[in-house]
Protein backbone atom coordinates (compact mmCIF):
# COMPACT_ATOMS: atom_id res chain seq x y z
CA UNK A 1 0.00 0.00 0.00
CA UNK A 2 1.48 3.29 -1.09
CA UNK A 3 1.28 6.03 1.46
CA UNK A 4 0.72 9.63 0.47
CA UNK A 5 3.83 11.67 -0.20
CA UNK A 6 2.50 14.69 1.61
CA UNK A 7 1.96 18.22 0.45
CA UNK A 8 5.55 19.25 -0.26
CA UNK A 9 6.11 19.99 -3.93
CA UNK A 10 2.56 18.89 -4.47
CA UNK A 11 0.78 17.81 -7.60
CA UNK A 12 -1.76 20.60 -7.27
CA UNK A 13 -0.79 23.91 -5.71
CA UNK A 14 -3.47 26.50 -5.07
CA UNK A 15 -1.98 29.80 -3.93
CA UNK A 16 -3.96 32.77 -2.68
CA UNK A 17 -7.01 32.15 -4.81
CA UNK A 18 -9.84 34.66 -4.39
CA UNK A 19 -13.15 34.85 -6.14
CA UNK A 20 -16.04 37.20 -5.53
CA UNK A 21 -19.47 37.51 -7.06
CA UNK A 22 -20.81 41.02 -7.31
CA UNK A 23 -19.14 42.25 -4.14
CA UNK A 24 -19.68 39.08 -2.13
CA UNK A 25 -16.36 37.35 -1.49
CA UNK A 26 -16.93 33.63 -1.90
CA UNK A 27 -13.31 32.48 -1.70
CA UNK A 28 -10.82 34.69 0.06
CA UNK A 29 -7.13 33.99 -0.51
CA UNK A 30 -7.18 30.24 -0.09
CA UNK A 31 -4.02 28.11 -0.16
CA UNK A 32 -4.34 24.41 -0.76
CA UNK A 33 -2.04 21.71 -1.95
CA UNK A 34 -2.53 18.11 -2.93
CA UNK A 35 0.50 15.86 -3.17
CA UNK A 36 0.95 13.03 -5.65
CA UNK A 37 -1.17 10.06 -4.63
CA UNK A 38 -2.62 11.93 -1.68
CA UNK A 39 -6.29 12.00 -0.84
CA UNK A 40 -7.57 15.31 0.50
CA UNK A 41 -11.06 16.15 1.68
CA UNK A 42 -12.45 19.66 1.38
CA UNK A 43 -15.30 20.19 3.82
CA UNK A 44 -17.22 23.05 5.37
CA UNK A 45 -20.74 24.31 5.92
CA UNK A 46 -23.00 25.60 3.15
CA UNK A 47 -21.75 28.82 1.66
CA UNK A 48 -18.19 28.24 2.84
CA UNK A 49 -16.85 28.57 -0.70
CA UNK A 50 -15.90 24.94 -1.31
CA UNK A 51 -17.75 24.65 -4.59
CA UNK A 52 -16.45 28.00 -5.81
CA UNK A 53 -12.87 26.93 -5.10
CA UNK A 54 -13.53 23.59 -6.73
CA UNK A 55 -14.94 25.24 -9.84
CA UNK A 56 -11.89 27.48 -10.03
CA UNK A 57 -9.66 24.40 -10.01
CA UNK A 58 -11.52 22.57 -12.74
CA UNK A 59 -12.05 25.64 -14.91
CA UNK A 60 -15.75 26.39 -14.59
CA UNK A 61 -14.83 29.69 -12.96
CA UNK A 62 -11.85 31.96 -13.37
CA UNK A 63 -10.36 33.16 -10.08
CA UNK A 64 -9.98 36.91 -9.54
CA UNK A 65 -6.62 36.51 -7.86
CA UNK A 66 -4.07 33.83 -7.13
CA UNK A 67 -2.57 30.92 -9.02
CA UNK A 68 -3.46 27.29 -9.53
CA UNK A 69 -0.52 25.14 -10.57
CA UNK A 70 -0.86 21.52 -11.62
CA UNK A 71 2.25 19.45 -12.37
CA UNK A 72 4.17 22.67 -12.67
CA UNK A 73 1.74 24.23 -15.15
CA UNK A 74 -0.35 27.29 -14.43
CA UNK A 75 -3.99 26.36 -15.00
CA UNK A 76 -5.79 29.67 -14.60
CA UNK A 77 -6.10 30.46 -18.29
CA UNK A 78 -6.80 26.96 -19.58
CA UNK A 79 -10.29 25.83 -20.57
CA UNK A 80 -11.79 22.84 -18.73
CA UNK A 81 -11.10 20.33 -21.50
CA UNK A 82 -7.42 21.27 -21.62
CA UNK A 83 -7.18 20.75 -17.88
CA UNK A 84 -8.74 17.33 -18.31
CA UNK A 85 -6.06 16.42 -20.85
CA UNK A 86 -3.33 17.40 -18.43
CA UNK A 87 -4.49 14.58 -16.20
CA UNK A 88 -7.23 16.05 -14.03
CA UNK A 89 -10.24 13.78 -13.93
CA UNK A 90 -13.46 14.82 -12.31
CA UNK A 91 -16.92 13.73 -11.28
CA UNK A 92 -19.84 16.09 -10.91
CA UNK A 93 -22.32 16.96 -8.21
CA UNK A 94 -25.24 16.98 -10.65
CA UNK A 95 -24.31 14.01 -12.78
CA UNK A 96 -23.07 14.88 -16.26
CA UNK A 97 -23.42 11.68 -18.23
CA UNK A 98 -24.30 11.25 -21.90
CA UNK A 99 -27.79 9.74 -21.67
CA UNK A 100 -27.91 7.89 -24.97
CA UNK A 101 -24.49 6.27 -24.83
CA UNK A 102 -23.99 2.92 -23.18
CA UNK A 103 -21.72 2.52 -20.19
CA UNK A 104 -19.04 0.98 -22.39
CA UNK A 105 -19.32 3.83 -24.88
CA UNK A 106 -18.76 6.34 -22.10
CA UNK A 107 -15.49 4.67 -21.34
CA UNK A 108 -14.56 4.24 -24.98
CA UNK A 109 -15.14 7.93 -25.63
CA UNK A 110 -12.89 8.80 -22.73
CA UNK A 111 -10.32 6.29 -23.96
CA UNK A 112 -10.37 7.71 -27.47
CA UNK A 113 -9.95 11.23 -26.11
CA UNK A 114 -6.98 10.01 -24.15
CA UNK A 115 -5.29 7.88 -26.79
CA UNK A 116 -6.50 8.84 -30.24
CA UNK A 117 -7.48 12.45 -30.03
CA UNK A 118 -6.30 14.62 -32.83
CA UNK A 119 -5.65 11.72 -35.18
CA UNK A 120 -7.66 11.28 -38.34
CA UNK A 121 -10.77 10.12 -36.52
CA UNK A 122 -13.13 11.37 -39.20
CA UNK A 123 -11.31 9.48 -41.92
CA UNK A 124 -11.28 6.31 -39.81
CA UNK A 125 -15.01 6.66 -39.22
CA UNK A 126 -15.78 7.09 -42.91
CA UNK A 127 -13.64 4.11 -43.86
CA UNK A 128 -15.43 2.02 -41.23
CA UNK A 129 -12.34 1.50 -39.11
CA UNK A 130 -13.75 3.08 -35.96
CA UNK A 131 -14.56 -0.16 -34.16
CA UNK A 132 -12.66 -0.41 -30.89
CA UNK A 133 -9.56 -2.55 -30.99
CA UNK A 134 -8.97 -5.47 -28.65
CA UNK A 135 -6.46 -3.35 -26.80
CA UNK A 136 -8.97 -0.55 -26.23
CA UNK A 137 -11.66 -2.97 -25.16
CA UNK A 138 -9.21 -4.57 -22.78
CA UNK A 139 -8.41 -1.26 -21.16
CA UNK A 140 -12.08 -0.39 -20.85
CA UNK A 141 -12.94 -3.82 -19.52
CA UNK A 142 -10.24 -3.42 -16.87
CA UNK A 143 -11.81 -0.20 -15.59
CA UNK A 144 -15.33 -1.64 -15.79
CA UNK A 145 -14.42 -4.59 -13.64
CA UNK A 146 -12.52 -2.37 -11.25
CA UNK A 147 -15.63 -0.29 -10.64
CA UNK A 148 -17.97 -3.27 -10.87
CA UNK A 149 -19.94 -2.25 -13.96
CA UNK A 150 -19.23 -5.24 -16.19
CA UNK A 151 -22.81 -6.54 -16.18
CA UNK A 152 -24.18 -3.16 -17.12
CA UNK A 153 -21.63 -2.38 -19.83
CA UNK A 154 -24.08 -2.35 -22.73
CA UNK A 155 -26.95 -0.53 -21.07
CA UNK A 156 -27.57 3.11 -22.09
CA UNK A 157 -27.02 5.20 -18.97
CA UNK A 158 -30.45 6.80 -19.37
CA UNK A 159 -31.76 3.51 -18.01
CA UNK A 160 -29.52 3.47 -14.94
CA UNK A 161 -30.19 4.79 -11.46
CA UNK A 162 -28.30 7.68 -10.00
CA UNK A 163 -25.89 5.67 -7.90
CA UNK A 164 -24.79 3.69 -10.92
CA UNK A 165 -24.46 6.87 -12.95
CA UNK A 166 -22.01 8.13 -10.34
CA UNK A 167 -19.95 5.00 -10.81
CA UNK A 168 -20.13 5.51 -14.59
CA UNK A 169 -18.78 9.02 -14.14
CA UNK A 170 -16.06 7.70 -11.94
CA UNK A 171 -15.14 4.97 -14.41
CA UNK A 172 -15.19 7.47 -17.26
CA UNK A 173 -12.78 9.70 -15.39
CA UNK A 174 -10.52 6.73 -14.58
CA UNK A 175 -10.14 5.72 -18.21
CA UNK A 176 -8.34 9.00 -18.73
CA UNK A 177 -5.81 7.73 -16.17
CA UNK A 178 -5.81 10.99 -14.23
CA UNK A 179 -3.10 11.77 -11.75
CA UNK A 180 -5.63 13.84 -9.81
CA UNK A 181 -9.33 13.10 -9.42
CA UNK A 182 -11.66 15.90 -8.39
CA UNK A 183 -14.83 14.49 -6.87
CA UNK A 184 -17.66 16.96 -6.25
CA UNK A 185 -20.08 15.72 -3.60
CA UNK A 186 -20.25 12.16 -4.87
CA UNK A 187 -22.74 11.25 -2.15
CA UNK A 188 -25.37 13.83 -3.09
CA UNK A 189 -28.65 12.16 -3.94
CA UNK A 190 -27.43 8.73 -2.89
CA UNK A 191 -28.60 6.70 0.06
CA UNK A 192 -26.25 5.46 2.73
CA UNK A 193 -25.43 2.14 1.13
CA UNK A 194 -24.65 3.68 -2.25
CA UNK A 195 -22.53 6.33 -0.57
CA UNK A 196 -20.48 3.63 1.10
CA UNK A 197 -19.96 1.88 -2.21
CA UNK A 198 -18.73 4.99 -3.99
CA UNK A 199 -16.48 5.77 -1.03
CA UNK A 200 -14.93 2.35 -1.01
CA UNK A 201 -14.25 2.40 -4.72
CA UNK A 202 -12.64 5.82 -4.44
CA UNK A 203 -10.43 4.79 -1.57
CA UNK A 204 -9.36 1.59 -3.21
CA UNK A 205 -8.39 3.42 -6.39
CA UNK A 206 -6.45 6.01 -4.53
CA UNK A 207 -4.52 3.40 -2.60
CA UNK A 208 -3.85 0.96 -5.41
CA UNK A 209 -3.31 3.27 -8.37
CA UNK A 210 -1.57 6.10 -6.58
CA UNK A 211 -4.12 8.57 -7.86
CA UNK A 212 -4.48 11.78 -5.89
CA UNK A 213 -8.04 12.63 -4.88
CA UNK A 214 -9.57 15.97 -3.94
CA UNK A 215 -12.96 15.26 -2.45
CA UNK A 216 -15.57 17.91 -1.75
CA UNK A 217 -18.17 16.26 0.40
CA UNK A 218 -20.80 16.94 3.04
CA UNK A 219 -21.06 13.40 4.30
CA UNK A 220 -18.33 13.27 6.91
CA UNK A 221 -18.48 9.51 7.23
CA UNK A 222 -17.60 9.29 3.58
CA UNK A 223 -14.84 11.86 3.94
CA UNK A 224 -13.37 9.89 6.79
CA UNK A 225 -13.41 6.71 4.74
CA UNK A 226 -11.69 8.26 1.75
CA UNK A 227 -9.19 10.90 2.76
CA UNK A 228 -5.74 11.10 4.34
CA UNK A 229 -6.06 14.74 5.18
CA UNK A 230 -8.96 17.10 5.50
CA UNK A 231 -9.16 20.84 4.85
CA UNK A 232 -12.02 22.77 6.45
CA UNK A 233 -13.33 25.98 4.92
CA UNK A 234 -15.66 28.52 6.44
CA UNK A 235 -16.75 31.91 5.06
CA UNK A 236 -14.31 31.65 2.16
CA UNK A 237 -11.21 30.85 4.21
CA UNK A 238 -9.40 27.71 5.33
CA UNK A 239 -10.00 27.38 9.08
CA UNK A 240 -8.32 24.07 9.76
CA UNK A 241 -6.32 21.35 8.07
CA UNK A 242 -4.88 18.03 9.15
CA UNK A 243 -5.81 14.43 9.88
CA UNK A 244 -9.54 13.78 10.01
CA UNK A 245 -9.90 12.94 13.70
CA UNK A 246 -7.68 15.82 14.85
CA UNK A 247 -9.44 18.37 12.69
CA UNK A 248 -12.90 17.28 13.73
CA UNK A 249 -11.92 17.74 17.36
CA UNK A 250 -10.90 21.33 16.74
CA UNK A 251 -12.91 24.13 18.19
CA UNK A 252 -13.17 26.21 15.03
CA UNK A 253 -14.43 23.28 13.03
CA UNK A 254 -17.14 22.36 15.46
CA UNK A 255 -18.25 25.94 15.49
CA UNK A 256 -18.29 26.21 11.72
CA UNK A 257 -20.33 23.06 11.46
CA UNK A 258 -22.48 23.04 14.53
CA UNK A 259 -22.57 26.67 15.52
CA UNK A 260 -21.53 25.66 19.03
CA UNK A 261 -19.37 28.11 20.86
Amino acid sequence: MRRPTGGIGGLLEVRGVSKSFGGRVAVDGVDLSVGGGESVGLVGPNGAGKTTLFNCICGQLRPDKGSIVFCGRELSRLSPWRRARLGIGRTFQRIEVFPELTVRDHLLVADRVRHRSGRANLWRDLSNRAAPSAEELGRVEGVLSMVGLVELADVPVAALDLGTCRLVELARALVGEPSLLLADEPSSGLDERETREVASVLRALQLTRGMAVLLVEHDLAMVEAVVDRVVVMDLGCVVASGAFADVMAEHAVRRAYLGTA
Partner: peptide
Protein backbone atom coordinates in the same frame (compact mmCIF):
# COMPACT_ATOMS: atom_id res chain seq x y z
CA UNK B 1 -9.29 4.55 9.00
CA UNK B 2 -11.26 2.04 7.01
CA UNK B 3 -9.00 -0.49 5.38
CA UNK B 4 -9.23 -2.58 2.28
CA UNK B 5 -11.64 -4.88 4.08
CA UNK B 6 -14.45 -2.37 4.12
CA UNK B 7 -13.68 -1.50 0.55
CA UNK B 8 -14.19 -5.02 -0.65
CA UNK B 9 -17.33 -5.56 1.37
CA UNK B 10 -18.93 -2.36 0.15
CA UNK B 11 -18.21 -3.05 -3.45
CA UNK B 12 -19.34 -6.64 -3.24
CA UNK B 13 -22.67 -5.68 -1.76
CA UNK B 14 -23.19 -3.40 -4.67
Amino acid sequence: TRGADTVGVGARTW
